[in-house]
Design a protein around this nucleic acid. Structure first.
Length: 259
DNA sequence: ATGGTGGTTCAACCA
């Protein structure tokens, strides 16, 4: 089963690119982040014609997450538990019915959190705590669990071309990194890093200052695998080629193959 | 280098 995640930075602006990617990469299931539209405005017909069924959790103008799958989806959960007052659409989860086994798959969009010290940064850290609590509960199930998305956290200096340029950024704060480490320590495998220990593995290049042409990237899109999912990991990668397309997203897709 | 670019919605916010 090929599983992918992609922050598309606006699904309506990126529709042609996304459909091309589905044709060329052919993921069985893919999580999207920053669809930036309400469910009713999502171009669902184009995905259905491409053979994908959808689970949506949209929001007007900002955020918004979705799952597209060639395999049946069941038991869709919208929103991350732990704060009933949180109205930001950043989390959706569903069971993917595979040919041999089912997996639980989440598409998540963690808050950016800039600037540090602000309410946005506190929201980011609170969201990480909620994700930890939810992941701890979900791990108790028997099903393989895949937590994929834009985490907005640079885990280690090796995950940035210029780590010194990020020291005062919410994406690289010690608190953000420690919170992600606590989640990983529950028993998850960082699939991309596990398959690619070498430096230079990035998933995001800013639109500004020629970051793409200078390969001035960071690795902030992650796929975390529960032990049951990690046992089946046969490969992972970044589809950097999409970043070189016309009108690209600033993120590239990340994928894993589970045998 | 406190700039620079891009999406959504329509003056401003978010990243």
């Amino acid at each position: 089963m090929k599983i992918a995640t992609w922050n598309v930075n606006g699904v309506k602006a990126r529709l042609d690119s996304v459909l091309t990617y589905l044709r060329e990469a052919g993921p069985d299931v893919i999580g999207f982040q920053e669809i930036k539209c309400v469910d009713e405005a999502f171009p669902a017909e184009a995905f259905e014609e491409a053979g994908y069924t959808l689970a949506l959790h949209g929001q007007k103008g900002f955020n918004g997450v979705a799952i597209a799958s060639r395999l049946p989806l069941e038991d869709v959960r919208r929103g991350l538990p732990g704060d009933g007052a949180d109205e930001q659409a950043r989390y959706i989860e569903a069971t993917v019915i595979g040919n041999t086994t089912a997996i639980r798959f989440a598409s998540l969009y963690l808050p950016n959190g800039n600037p540090i010290g602000s309410e946005k940064f506190a929201y980011k850290l609170a969201w990480l705590k909620r994700l930890e609590a939810h992941a701890r509960r979900a791990l108790k199930d028997e099903m393989p669990l895949v937590l994929a998305g834009d985490y907005n956290v640079i885990p280690e200096p090796v995950d940035a071309k210029r780590p010194d340029a990020w020291t005062s950024d919410a994406l690289f704060q010690p608190e953000s990194r420690a919170a992600l480490r606590r989640i990983a320590a529950l028993g998850f495998t960082d699939a991309l890093r596990a398959c690619h220990p070498e430096p230079g593995v990035y998933t995001f290049w800013d639109y500004q200052a020629g970051a793409w042409t200078k390969d001035n990237g960071i690795r902030i899109d992650h796929i975390l695998l529960s032990p049951q999912a990690a046992d089946r990991l046969t490969g992972a990668g970044v589809d950097r080629f999409t970043r070189g397309w016309e009108k690209p997203s600033d993120h590239a897709p990340v994928w894993v193959e589970l045998g």
